[in-house]
Design a protein around this nucleic acid. Structure first.
Length: 110
RNA sequence: CGAGCGGACUGCACUAUCGCGGCGUGCCAUAGAGCACGAUGAGGAAAGUCCGGGCAUCGCAGGGCAGGACGCCUGAUAACGUCAGGUGAAGGCGACUUCAAGGAAAGUGCAACAGAAAUAGACCGCCCGCUGAAUUUCCCCGAGUGGGAAAUGCCCACGGGCAUGCGCCCGCGGCUGCGGGUAAGGGUGGAACGGCGAGGCAAGAGCUCACCGACGGGACGGUAACGCCCCGUGCCAUGUAAACCCCGUCCGAUGCAAGUUUGGGUCUCUCUCACAAGGGUUGCCCGCCCGAGGAAGACCGUGAAUAACGCUGGAGCCUGCCGGUGACGGCAGGCGUAGAUAAAUGGUAGUGCUACCGCGCUUUGCGCGGGGUGACAGAACCCGGCUUACAGGUCCGUCUCGGAUA
RNA sequence: CGGGGUGUGGCGAAGUUUGGUAUCGCGCAUGGUUCGGGACCAUGAGGCCGCGGGUUCAAGUCCCGCCACUCCGA
């Protein structure tokens, strides 16, 4: 496992309260340093029917997965912005940008 | 060839690579939310949650009332509000399609507007008889179909007679009034005591007759719905029950967050009870059952609607044969095929197919190039249906209609 | 998973029980009043009653199937 799921409502609210918010073109990220890396994605009913919602969640997890090993451990919440279309590359790019900006990425250039 | 009708099926494919879920096997003494390998992993509707079951618990399912659902017939089925075959009605030239399709002489309600009249009567009209006056106002009593007074009125045309120019009498017709007959006709309306034709009559009328319709009875065919034929009755009560209702059939309640296992220990305080109170049992009533525990606080402990089971082998799927018009049933062989829970099937890249666009060949179509589309939609205990959504494509039929050719 | 509620002019509501001309307030338009505006007075435009079928002579109302929004319980 490269990261764990953030499931309990308590820890999610705590992250939302104390965590730092970062805004990019396609999504918003909330993070809080922790011992291990946890992830939660937030896709409510307004994003569409269940097929569409599931698809968005998969794209977000897939995009995050690329960075999970290379970063210092955090609790992370990902909230996509409402759009007509969602794209893996855009999500990946924005997550990378934000992590870099906060200096969370390890400096191991591969 | 064109336009249709009915039925069945399909629901992008492959490769590489990085990941995910549960399952199986194996690895490690840095044995865990671990790693490796293997096979496996969304639908025809998984959807809406509109019906019916399985299963589970309560409970014993006993009765009554209430409530709900269904409603042509026969069959299929575990069951159904589903399906199959038939009957009837409506629509279409036709193949075919659609239909909540019991009862309106058990009762109640409703039927706006229009119309003479609305579930029943008689306004106009038509016909017959009588009449050529009567109408209005006031008064009286013994209060009646009574009596009296005043005012205004005493019809028109034609023919004949008497009389002679006023006028009177008779006849026929009209008009007015009164009494009766009638339900043929009356701009309406969704619907007007059945339709239409002939006879009949003073005028009319099922008053009489033929045909059609209705109602009642009988024979025949069919398991039945019903069909068809014969006889009789002149015929009487419109529609609405997806208004209340009546008749028949069926329904115990709650739903996998059902339910099962674990859900601890110690102490303190308090409450109710034995012919009772309380609780459970369907919305209510009766009846029946339970009947000694229950509530609060403190400390230790704790993953505790985030644990495990239920949880997927089931009215299962596929193939063949047999029975049946068919739904479906029987037999034989084969298969092992999702089980998540902040919720697993995806990302990236490529190739093909296809939608779309452009060019060329006169058109169908074919070829070349571009472009980068692929519907509706995500299992949540499991089945059988129903309903709704859906790009594109395929196949079948002694199927229907129209045109052309032979 | 189970159970309700709502949908009517631009906005907010009545009417649905018991079927028969869709009404009210605000807003809008035009005219009057005023030096001008507001208020006030008069006039009247705006509705396939959420969508699609059915029953009925006739449906906002009754029945069936959908859609959207919203609430409640576990």
């Amino acid at each position: 496992m490269e990261y764990l799921r953030l499931k309990k409502e308590k820890s999610i609210s705590a992250t939302l309260k104390k965590g730092k918010r970062l805004h990019a073109e396609t999504l918003t990220m909330v993070f809080l340093p922790a011992e291990r890396t946890y992830l939660a994605v937030c896709v409510g009913k307004k994003y569409g029917k269940s097929v569409r919602r599931n698809h968005i969640k998969r794209l977000l997890r897939e995009a995050f997965r690329g960075y999970a090993q290379k970063m210092s451990p955090c609790r992370v919440l990902l909230i996509p912005h409402l759009a007509e279309k969602y794209d893996y590359h855009a999500f990946s790019r924005d997550i990378g940008k934000m992590l870099k900006k906060e200096g969370l990425l390890h400096e191991q250039t591969s």
